[in-house]
Computed example of a mutant assay.
Amino acid sequence: MKILGFDMEVDISNENTNLLVVTDNKLFGSICCNLNDKNSDNIVFVSNDSLINMKDILIVFDLLNFNINNKTIINKLYNHLSDNIISNIDEENELKDNFMKMVRIVYDEIDDFNVDISLNEELDLIKLFKMLNVEINTDYDGVLERMIDLLEIYSELNDQTIIFINILSYFSDEEIIEIQKYINYKKLSVLFFENSYNRGVYFENQYIIDDDFYDYAIQFDKK
């Protein structure tokens, strides 16, 4: 990640836990606006010398109100389930057999009408998932569980770089350590972007832009 006007390159690789702190409120707000607007003129993301479309970066401004069952994730979930079923001949055939039982029941009802009624006999798995209202359970006991679930969902379904804005204040030091362990275990590409950070928990890559607009990086070895 590169920010216009600064030489520092922010590493968001999945090899480390990553934190960017911008203490000047106006600059912090400006960067947030650019991230929200997907403004690639002021912020760019690069991987292997190639530009990454900012639309492919997930920006989470409000963890508590973030819709885990958004359209992108639901589509990924349905496609994933569909592929798994199709790859299992026994499951696919069982579903088709049960679907045809339903079709025959409907045909029996249709026969009672003196109206020409058509019926689609092809099983559409995506429509079936929608009919069954297949979605991710969002009944959480706390914010940490919600956070871990979001990371798990995106690691399983979307493999997407995630930037969290000002969310570390939701968590205790112990919970931040648990989140870091999970990120390291899953090898997720995650950046925490904060307006301030004075906690005793260190990130392996810490990037600072202070009130004097001086930018520098601090690296901490993995424990």
Rank of each mutant, 00 (worst) to 15 (best):
L119Q: 07
L125R: 05
D221P: 07
K71S: 13
N65L: 05
I110G: 03
D149M: 11
D159H: 14
F6W: 00
N98K: 09
I209V: 13
E94G: 10
I105L: 14
I153L: 12
G5P: 03
D56W: 00
F113A: 02
N18Y: 01
D62G: 03
I12R: 02
V115F: 07
K127M: 12
K130C: 10
S155F: 11
S30W: 04
D49T: 02
E9I: 11
V115Q: 12
E174T: 14
N93V: 14
M8D: 07
V22A: 05
M54H: 02
K26D: 05
M147F: 13
Y170W: 03
N75W: 02
G200T: 12
D111C: 01
M8H: 02
L63M: 11
D111E: 08
Q206G: 10
E15D: 05
D159S: 13
L157H: 00
I52S: 10
E109K: 14
N114D: 15
D90Q: 14
I179E: 00
K223P: 15
L4M: 13
V46G: 07
L35Q: 03
N120R: 07
D149I: 03
V21C: 00
D139C: 14
L123E: 12
N48S: 13
S40C: 03
N39G: 05
S50I: 08
I177V: 15
I117K: 07
N93P: 10
L35R: 06
H80P: 01
C33R: 10
K38I: 08
S118E: 13
E175A: 04
L95A: 01
D49F: 04
Q160R: 15
L157R: 00
S118I: 06
N205V: 01
E156H: 06
D37P: 04
D97L: 09
L95V: 00
R104K: 15
N36W: 04
E121L: 00
D124M: 03
